[in-house]
Write a protein that binds this DNA or RNA. Structure first.
Lengths: 250, 250
DNA sequence: CGTTGCCATTGATCTGCGTCAAGGAAGATC
DNA sequence: GATCTTCCTTGACGCAGATCAATGGCAACG
């Protein structure tokens, strides 16, 4: 999954100051195809906490996250919730060939998305095969991430779950910023305790307790509620129960 | 996910007596492209219990399941296991663009796979875009299934997990056979209790207890260890905690 | 500056499922 | 038909994490 994220970030970077997903999708497009895409796109903004779309609603567009963070969640009748996706800038939302949303999509921070109406986007997919292929790669990456998450949900302890989440978020932006010469990293976690709980299949109380425990044990340090410092990334990885090094650049 | 499975089955059927995945992939191919694929393929057989490939091993082929059942599992260093995929006939194994296996692939029954060497398959993907598009659809379906499974792993009780698994397996082959005029269905479950546990994020003891409980409550009836009769599919669905009707044909 | 609302922390208690352990059923092998 | 092997069932017990409940921090707002 490390490669996945690095690739995404790299592509994300490619488009310079404008991290628009279709540029990532189209990294290998010639300019004519870029033109076509440019004409199709439009932007939508959402405030933190706003719901972008409800599961079961009609969804006539696909989109990519430009800035901010969105989540995909599933809810049972009795209110139990499970987050099934965390959408970061450059991530793709929606599904070609499906007009009904399968998940609730919610903005957890202020959010800007770059949208394409679904039908023209699908037509474009057919006409420009390598875009479809890039989309396939991205989907395969997401599938890998989902399966890694299944291991977390099914078999890891609460402590391991928290450590894994922190490691993943740290890994995502460690290569970009806030990284000093030793293994020290800081992470801005844009989720409430409850959202973390929904992602990890825990309760918010357990999340809070385990974060306190990791702090007590010196694995992490807190600055405020959301900024987390990781003095030694390797120790965090040990806590996460992962067998790999998590793809942290050496 | 119901549509997913029906589609797969339909495509699977299309190729008549020979349920070979590439025919499914190529449902829209013209005959020339079929030719190419025919020349690339070769078959491999495995006995029940045999490991097809270990996570981390080199994997120079992609394949589709012709007959039998295989599983994808992830294992932690201390031996905790989580199944992340159940491969039925017509399902695809392997990943274009990746030569190292990410999961253990194991044959749980005698298994026949139709294989393609990876490199030629990838070349073919580039040349025949609609094959890539079909592969994209399949991957998106798998992603949906994985996310549904995340809800199960993160939030459902042991009883709901068992009921969900039975409902899913029942739904898969209910439309094909063993279905009588009422909601009554029989399911042949080709997994041991331990494999079910690995799939559901439980222990084998809990699986056994919950199956006994469902039997005691009249939700299911057992004939031997593996053949499960479902007198009333709706009641099973209620136990599963799903809000949909599970896509059961009316 | 006090109030309101949201989020986080911490404690006390409960419980569903894991763990450990002891058989039982049914097919395979001799 | 005896023994093995594999898989399954059931019981007793303990614990990780859920639940219930109280309190605290802090920003926004009048």
């Amino acid at each position: 999954m490390n490669v996945t994220l690095h690739e995404k970030q790299a592509l994300h970077m490619e488009c310079g100051g404008c991290p628009i997903r279709h540029r990532a999708v189209c990294a290998r497009c010639d300019s004519a195809e870029m033109e076509t895409l440019e004409q199709l796109k439009f932007y939508r903004s959402f405030q933190a906490g706003q719901t972008v779309i409800w599961s079961g609603d009609r969804m006539d567009f696909v989109a990519s996250v430009v800035s901010g963070i969105a989540t995909l969640t599933q809810t049972m009748e009795d209110g139990r919730r499970q987050m099934v996706g965390l959408l970061l800038p450059s991530d793709f939302v929606g599904r070609p060939g499906r007009s009904i949303a399968s998940y609730d999509v919610t903005a957890t921070t202020d959010l800007v998305m770059c949208c394409f109406r679904r039908k023209p986007f699908e037509d474009m997919l057919v006409k420009t095969p390598h875009v479809a292929q890039r989309l396939l790669e991205m989907t395969l990456d997401e599938l890998d991430a989902a399966r890694e998450w299944m291991l977390l949900l099914g078999r890891k302890t609460a402590r391991e779950k928290i450590a894994s989440l922190l490691a993943i978020v740290a890994r995502r932006d460690a290569s970009l910023h806030m990284r000093d010469t030793q293994g020290k990293v800081s992470v801005e976690l844009p989720l409430t305790r409850e959202e973390m709980a929904d992602y990890l299949g825990l309760t918010l109380e357990t999340v809070s307790r385990q974060i306190s425990a990791l702090k007590r044990d010196g694995i992490i340090r807190l600055h405020g509620k959301r900024l987390i410092e990781i003095p030694d990334y390797r120790r965090l990885l040990d806590e996460a129960g992962d067998d790999s090094d998590g793809g942290m650049p050496a």
